[in-house]
Design a protein around this nucleic acid. Structure first.
Length: 469
RNA sequence: UCCCCUAUAGCUCAACGGUAGAGCGAGCGGCUGUUAACCGCUAGGUUCUUGGUUCGAAUCCAAGUGGGGGAGCCA
């Protein structure tokens, strides 16, 4: 007999009277002296468990059913009935309850049917998906990932699988993890005493990618509209609620596009995936609003309805300076040429504008070499999308498509042009204005759910000294 | 990497220099078409480790280890 997902039962898609089979794990068991037990069975297909009513005339009632504890796995067959109790419209009247797997020692089962701290649950990452919160996170995460792909697919974007391993050391967006098969106890040396990487697996130094952008630009300059969505690695020793050593990043790249088009895409894209989330995961979002962050749903609704403010960096500095002169105190000084600190970003989006803000055209000195130099020669076509409650959520830019300018910028920043030969080739052969942005997937989930720590929105977080699972 | 906080029962915490407690969870019993039910009883701790101060340390001090928060870096 086929298994019916709990979500189908609770959504009312299965008529009363239908014979069904439910497979899942026990959340709670309550015995009634009326001669029956109530089993809450969850299978992860939706937020709520289904109530199974197990009558005492089941042959294994005392031997099995009454010994069920939180975490046991069961295989139930029965009939969908209208619930006689409040709290659920339908339930399953069991004809048989087969215990598939017992819980070894209920006394020490780590996931009791009670509140647990997130710190504790991080230590049992293999069992935490059985809790309300982590089940909800998993479904929200999946929903957003599917929404990302659907958004781009429906608009003719091609998903490009940029490499995880990169043998070019030209990414420069932070510390990288080395990939090597060299025997660390017996490292081959060059005559000069350095490491002889010609003996290594790739014949040269290799690392885990810190961004797929440079690679995906090559496909944008052929397929017009592309994006990457995959794991990204940073070996920074940062220990915060907003950083991971391994995280997922979304990086669209569009050809024949300028910074304004990039900002328009960012706005439309964010609104679309959040709209999908509210539509498809109302049950989980209600949980987050009830238990994690009261404002998470209204925050998304406001976000979707608001039009994003566009503001020049120079204007942003002017407004911040005015705020300072009006008595607003910031920990970090405000000056043209400085990068915006989180406190500045939050002031702009939360207090000054009260809506998402796209800050555009930053000083070239604080941005990457590949960003397009503006006519003023002082700024580059970079943008940050700032949102109330989180600050920067997206960073992007129009890319420098003019070879001579690109070379000048590479030299200005003291970089070696040689490794960028293939990146420069794009500017030699049919170059075209193009732009793109990067969105940290886990930070998006944090924003949507109100979860406080990024380690709780990815199944198995990797961070300094953290790779147990 | 820097700064701060913290470590007591399976979990969340109390005890703040004088014999280690509660709630939840667990076991047993009672009660009930129950809703993370309710009532009673029971079991459960070498107070993170090492060293120090003291007649006496969960408590004070030092170092270490684990955990958390903030900063920086960034997505």
């Amino acid at each position: 007999m086929q298994t019916t997902p709990v979500t189908a039962l609770l959504a009312g898609r299965i008529p009363v009277g239908t014979a069904v089979r439910v497979q899942g794990w026990i959340r709670t068991r309550r015995d009634s002296k009326a001669g029956l037990s109530f089993l809450h069975v969850h299978d992860g297909s939706c937020f709520d468990p289904v109530q199974v009513v197990a009558p005492s005339d089941l042959p294994n009632y005392t031997s099995d059913v009454q010994r069920l504890t939180t975490g046991c796995s069961v295989d139930v067959t029965g009939t969908v009935v209208a619930s006689a109790g409040a709290g659920q419209s339908v339930e399953v009247q069991a004809a048989s309850v087969r215990v598939v797997g017992w819980v070894d020692d209920p006394e020490t089962y780590p996931v009791a049917a009670k509140r647990h701290s997130f710190e504790y649950l991080r230590e049992i990452a293999h069992l935490r998906p059985r809790t309300n919160t982590f089940g909800a996170i998993a479904r929200v995460r999946n929903c957003l990932a599917q929404a990302v792909h659907r958004y781009f697919h429906e608009r003719g974007f091609c998903w490009i699988h940029t490499p995880i391993i990169t043998a070019s050391d030209c990414e420069g967006a932070g510390a990288m993890f080395r990939v090597s098969t060299l025997d660390m106890l017996n490292i081959p040396r060059t005559p000069a005493g350095g490491v002889d990487f010609s003996n290594d697996f790739f014949g040269k130094e290799a690392f885990l990618t810190v961004s797929g952008q440079l690679n995906v630009e090559t496909y944008a300059c052929a397929l017009s509209k592309v994006y990457t969505f995959g794991p990204t690695f940073r070996a920074e020793n940062s220990n915060t609620t907003r950083h991971l050593s391994e995280f997922w990043m979304i990086e669209p790249e569009i050809a024949f596009a300028d910074l304004a088009a990039d900002a328009d895409l960012a706005e439309d894209f964010l609104k679309a995936i959040f709209r999908t989330l509210l539509e498809e995961r109302a049950d989980d979002m209600k949980f987050f609003a009830d238990r994690i962050d009261r404002s998470c749903i209204t925050r998304l609704e406001t976000f979707i309805d608001a039009s994003f403010e566009r503001m020049e960096y120079t204007e942003a500095i002017r407004r911040l300076e005015k705020a300072v002169s009006d008595g607003r105190a910031f920990e970090f000084p405000v000056r043209w040429g400085c990068d915006l600190q989180s406190e500045h970003e939050r002031y702009l989006t939360e207090e000054l504008v009260g809506r998402p803000v796209v800050v555009m055209n930053y000083p070239k000195a604080i941005k990457a070499f590949y960003m397009r130099l503006n006519d003023d020669e002082r700024t580059v076509a970079a943008m940050d999308v700032l949102a109330p409650g989180i600050g920067e959520i997206i960073g992007g830019s129009q890319r420098e498509e003019r070879l001579d300018v690109l070379d000048r910028r590479i030299a200005e920043m003291g970089l070696d042009a040689a490794p960028y030969w293939w990146y420069r080739d794009l500017r030699r052969y049919g170059t075209v204005p193009h732009a793109g942005f990067g969105l940290g997937f886990e930070r998006t989930i944090i924003y949507a759910t109100g979860m406080a720590n990024i380690r709780d929105v990815i199944p198995f977080p990797r961070a300094p000294r953290t790779a147990e699972f």
